[in-house]
Amino acid sequence: MYTKEQQRAVLTEYVVEKASKQIGMFTAILVIVATIIISLIIYTMTLEKMKEISIMKLMGIPNSMIVRMIVEETLLLGILAFLFGNLFSHLIYSRFPKRVVLEIPDAWMLFAVVVVASIAASFVGVKKVISADPAAAIGG
């Protein structure tokens, strides 16, 4: 048997735990979706640059340099998205139906996730670069 106090404690814990799990899942899904979107954007941006990439390869620029360009571009995209997202949430969070607390450590955590996710997202672009044909640069 629980005392009243204990019951309350267990119940609040349960509710809080559930809510935080809920939010955690939401965050995870949003990060995954964002990663996919960034991958797709980088993929199309890389496709648009295939000609230049072929030229760079033809000139003798090593893959490592080209790949670095793409990863940098993706990181930039990810960091910009993170900054805008944060700014936006700070602007509107007071209007949320339920009070939310924005904590700095959480933001850093998310930032780390964004960096890792962006690098993962650039993989598709990078794969495309490695397979680019330098001879295709001049054909047509």
Partner: peptide, 13 residues
């Protein structure tokens, strides 16, 4: 071969 290209050859199109 890419090393030869970047060290020895200039390309113009």
């Amino acid at each position: 071969t890419r090393k030869i290209r970047r060290e020895k050859i200039g390309f113009i199109f």
